[in-house]
């Protein structure tokens, strides 16, 4: 899955390199038109493309597989035979999902940066505010964006873990998690449901653009972290309750 994710920025970079017609400014994903001028934008563009679907997809697969996958393979009861306790198993499984969130985001960012450096010239980066920053600082900001997206995906991982405790069919848990992430994003785009928007776990997913402003706006980073922490707390508590009462038969 990481390889598939790494392919996205490479595809973008190659497609932009091969197309003779320069992309019109303002069309397509963020910064697509500026890739030819500065390769460092490949990473950001790739992240913008991946956040709505590809990243939730892979995170949904990993998070949905955590408990249900073990149950399906019949290995869950052997894991529980060890004197480690169910909370610990749950925590370790969640930590694994979190590690994947980070690995996935970092993969996209790193492969994007690499593809951009190889195929396009590299120079000072223009921020949304119109100011330019050095290559070093832009790398720092890329790291911050990767951190932001990792945090953004924590809530979804917790939801996946919760669903995973309810079923023995991993595919069901994966599909339900991914569907939830899509539903949440659709709801987030309906202006009629504005009161609901701040509570949707996908509401701040694209807020990492705030890290590309000068000076950096930390508001959405903080609000996003708080929201995801809330989802982790609620889903974690429910997952613990369900899992500790579960009759593990397989």
């Amino acid at each position: 899955m990481l390889i598939a994710l790494a392919a996205v920025p490479v595809l973008i970079a190659v497609a932009v390199k091969l197309s003779s017609r320069p992309a019109a400014p303002g069309r397509g994903p963020l910064f697509l038109d500026r890739i030819t001028q500065n390769g460092l934008f490949v990473a950001v563009t790739a992240l913008v493309v991946c956040v709505p679907l590809f990243l939730p997809l892979t995170v949904g697969v990993v998070a949905g597989d955590t408990i249900a996958g073990e149950a399906n393979l019949g290995t869950l009861r052997y894991l529980l035979l060890a004197p480690a306790g169910r909370i610990r198993l749950l925590l370790v499984k969640y930590a694994g999902a979190v590690a994947f969130c980070f690995a996935a985001t970092a993969t996209v960012a790193a492969s994007g940066a690499l593809a951009g450096v190889v195929l396009f010239p590299v120079g000072p980066v223009t921020l949304l505010s119109g100011d330019t920053v050095s290559v070093g600082e832009s790398a720092l900001r890329s790291l911050l964006i990767a951190a932001y997206i990792t945090v953004s995906l924590l809530g979804l991982s917790a939801i996946g873990l919760l669903i995973s405790t309810f079923t023995d069919v991993p595919v069901g848990a994966m599909a339900a998690t991914i569907v939830l992430s899509v539903v949440s994003q659709v709801l987030d785009n309906l202006p009629q449901l504005e009161w609901l928007h701040p509570w949707l776990f996908s509401h701040y997913w694209l807020g990492f653009a705030d890290l590309l402003r000068q000076p950096i706006s930390w508001t959405s980073f903080g609000e996003n972290a708080l929201l995801q922490a809330g989802y982790i707390a609620v889903c974690g508590a429910l997952a613990y309750a369900k899992f500790s009462n579960k009759d593990v038969l397989s």
């Binding site: 809330g230 707390a233 609620v234 974690g236 508590a237 429910l238 613990y240 309750a241 369900k242 500790s244 009462n245």
Partner: peptide, 13 residues
């Protein structure tokens, strides 16, 4: 008892 935290944490939030 095990469902208790699942109730308490959302309530606290």
């Amino acid at each position: 008892q095990r469902w208790l935290p699942a109730l308490l944490i959302p309530l606290a939030l």
